[in-house]
Write a protein that binds this DNA or RNA. Structure first.
Length: 333
DNA sequence: CATCGATGTTGAG
DNA sequence: TCAACCTCGATGG
């Protein structure tokens, strides 16, 4: 999935384009017809992300809970407001785009899957053309329809007068009460973008230091800490020089605190850039190389059998609780 | 065209 | 521990 950073980006997109607006809701695929009918014609009054889940409140009482799972994604079309808090790479700030185009003077919004604002979630090709501000080519007939034609399996479509959001492939998409939402959130570990970071650090450290469970599993446990998935897990353990099998209670306290602070750091980079950049600190050619090739962006993730970037030892791939775990047996111990 | 795999979670056994 | 769930791009014939 889409680890925590993606969900925060999605929530921000809804905040900009849907909050305070009346939405038409439908389930083109039919599997969420009942829920969509409940939402149809109501106003989005709150939207927030906690870990890998998004919660949106409508008419100040009904909540929509969405978990993208491994394959889920939101596709945005129409008017898409860029994040004004993030300066684009060329120094300009985001600005409102025209209908039917995606604001794209930031190379980050390059139209390719995760990197595109128009599709956030599982890696897949954007369904809406991205048009650079200088270019006038672009939209074909299909894109000019409003609302956009439904393509593939769309569980839920939310539509304002000018923006369309299509949800496909979620593991969870359901109507919940405010109380149920509160219970769900209460069951989750701290999220650096939701909780006070110092309180989060205490909670995380307290739990980890008490458990016999391998740290490689604890980082993936959403009741211990929210938002970390398989990529960030592997990368954070490498960055901490930590053997994934070390029981939580045997990890030095300062190392545990360091893991929390690193997650805080990586999450903020991820939300800003839309990419799981874990080799931050790179500059110049090394940076460009890492950004250009998906497989060059990580220290260990997806690098089984390749030489460790630091020591040259072969990166090991093992199954841990039926998820693939990549690590360097020399650097991490 | 068929098959596989993926940034995930749940629940049965 | 393992299968089921969900979708679609990548891969191989």
């Amino acid at each position: 999935m889409p680890e925590g950073h993606s969900v925060h980006r999605i929530a921000r997109q809804f905040d900009r384009n849907f909050l305070g607006r009346t939405v038409a809701a439908s389930s083109p695929q039919g599997r969420f017809a009942e829920g969509a009918a409940l939402l149809d014609g109501s106003e989005m009054t709150t939207v927030r992300a906690v870990g890998k889940q998004m919660f949106a409140e409508f008419d100040a009482h009904i909540w929509l809970r969405v978990h993208l799972g491994m394959y889920g994604a939101w596709d945005f079309a129409g008017e898409i407001q860029a994040d004004p808090t993030i300066a684009s790479a060329n120094g300009r700030m985001g600005q409102t785009n025209q209908r039917g185009t995606l604001l794209a003077d930031d190379p980050i919004y390059d139209g390719a899957g995760e990197n595109s604002l128009s599709s956030i979630g599982a890696p897949r090709r954007a369904r809406v053309h991205v048009r650079m501000s200088e270019q006038t080519t672009g939209l074909d007939d299909e894109d000019q329809q409003w609302p956009p034609a439904v393509v593939g399996q769309v569980r839920l479509r939310l539509l304002t007068a000018s923006t369309c959001a299509d949800l496909r492939g979620p593991t969870a998409c359901e109507i919940r009460s405010a109380e149920e939402v509160a219970d769900t959130i209460a069951s989750l570990g701290p999220d650096p973008l939701v909780d006070d970071v110092d309180e989060g650090e205490e909670r995380f450290t307290g739990v980890v230091r008490r458990k016999p469970t391998p740290i490689g599993l604890l980082l993936m446990d959403q009741s211990v800490v929210s938002g970390i998935g398989n990529v960030y897990r592997a990368e954070m353990l490498f960055r901490a020089n930590l053997d994934p099998h070390t029981p939580g209670r045997d990890v030095p306290e300062e190392t545990v605190r360091g893991l929390w602070r690193d997650w805080t750091h990586l999450l903020s980079i991820g939300v800003e850039t839309g990419q799981m950049m874990t080799m931050d600190g790179l500059t110049g050619d090394a940076y460009r190389q890492a950004m250009a090739h998906r497989d060059d962006r990580h220290w260990v993730y997806h690098r089984a059998g390749l030489p460790c970037r630091v020591c040259g030892t072969e990166i090991v791939l093992e199954e841990m609780s039926s998820r693939k775990l990549y690590w360097c047996p020399n650097c991490q111990r």
